[in-house]
Design a protein around this nucleic acid. Structure first.
Length: 280
DNA sequence: CTTGTGCCCTGCCAGC
DNA sequence: TGCTGGCAGGGCACAA
């Protein structure tokens, strides 16, 4: 599942490979992937044909493609989405959702098995509400323990949140880009039990949690992201961070720090992994 | 406002 | 062997 490091990996690769290439044709194959009202099968071609991408940006787990027309294409990869840049005659994937053909004889495929992902088109100057609602980005320079305070205090006032800290880490309006894998990993690095109520966290816990988030996201990025099953880079190759995970998907395996078997629990309907000895 | 639930969708796997 | 049911999950709509 593409989270912050995986999306950042893709964005960097796209910026190296597809900028300023003239788009000869864009085809929407799965019309239901284009989510905004009024969008139909022809909308993608209408927005992209004859243009070129100026640059691609990441906001949390979203990719924002800037067109030289001033228009923008917002993409989310959901659970199983990927962008693959390949020669125009490369075989078609069974789960192809859209294609962008370039004048250099290559194409960019958007492929998504479960179709939890989405594309949205925006005109020049149009506001993108999806992005303005996102919380702080854990790789931004200003990110620290203080930036995590919205996780433990309700939006208006001093009332403390009672929910499990793991659940709050997944809330994109509080913290943008963290998903199930890195929430588990960061809580391990911070030594915090994932079911612990946010109300019981202290300033020192938030400081360790912020440091843990930065560390795990930064190192995952250096390894091109984590592939559990579906994530692929733009060249269709997997990321290399899976072997370095501390707890995620390691039920029963030895903790890398104390050898205690890693446990799996359900928190807020999600599978969460932790070391019962290292995390309190 | 907060919090919880079910839905979207397909591949995979256990069980018969 | 081949079918079936359950499970997985990010984001969103909706309910309480």
């Amino acid at each position: 599942m593409p989270e912050l490091p995986e999306v950042e990996t893709i964005v960097r690769e796209l910026n190296q490979q597809i900028l300023r290439l003239k788009i000869t044709e864009a085809i929407l194959i799965r019309a239901d992937m284009l989510k905004r009202t009024g969008a139909d099968q022809r909308s993608l071609a209408a927005a992209l044909d004859g243009c070129a991408f100026d640059y691609v940006e990441r906001f949390g787990k979203y990719l924002l493609f800037h067109l030289d027309s001033g228009g923008k294409m917002l993409a989310h990869l959901g659970m199983t989405g990927k962008f693959v840049y390949c020669r125009a005659d490369h075989p078609l994937d069974k789960h192809l959702c859209s294609q962008v053909f370039f004048a250099n004889g290559w194409r960019l495929d958007h492929i998504d098995v479960r179709r939890f992902g989405r594309l949205e088109l925006y005109d020049q100057g149009e506001e993108i509400p999806t992005l303005t609602q996102l919380g702080v980005d854990p790789l931004s320079s200003s990110f620290n323990g203080k930036a995590l305070k919205p996780l433990i205090y309700a939006r208006n006032g001093k009332k403390r949140r009672q929910r499990a800290i793991h659940t709050l880490l997944l809330d994109q309006s509080l913290l943008a880009g963290v998903g199930n894998i890195y929430a588990s990993e960061a809580l391990f690095l911070a030594g915090i039990q994932p079911e612990k109520s946010a109300a019981r966290l202290k300033t020192a816990d938030l400081k360790r949690l912020a440091a843990g988030l930065r560390e795990i996201l930064q190192s995952a990025l250096e390894y091109g992201g984590t592939t559990v099953s579906d994530f692929r880079r733009v060249d269709d190759k997997p990321g290399n961070f899976r072997d370095r995970l501390y707890v995620y998907d390691r039920t029963g395996e030895a903790c890398r720090r104390c050898q205690t078997p890693i446990q799996r629990v359900r928190v807020g309907g999600r599978s969460v992994f932790f070391c019962p000895k290292c995390q309190k």
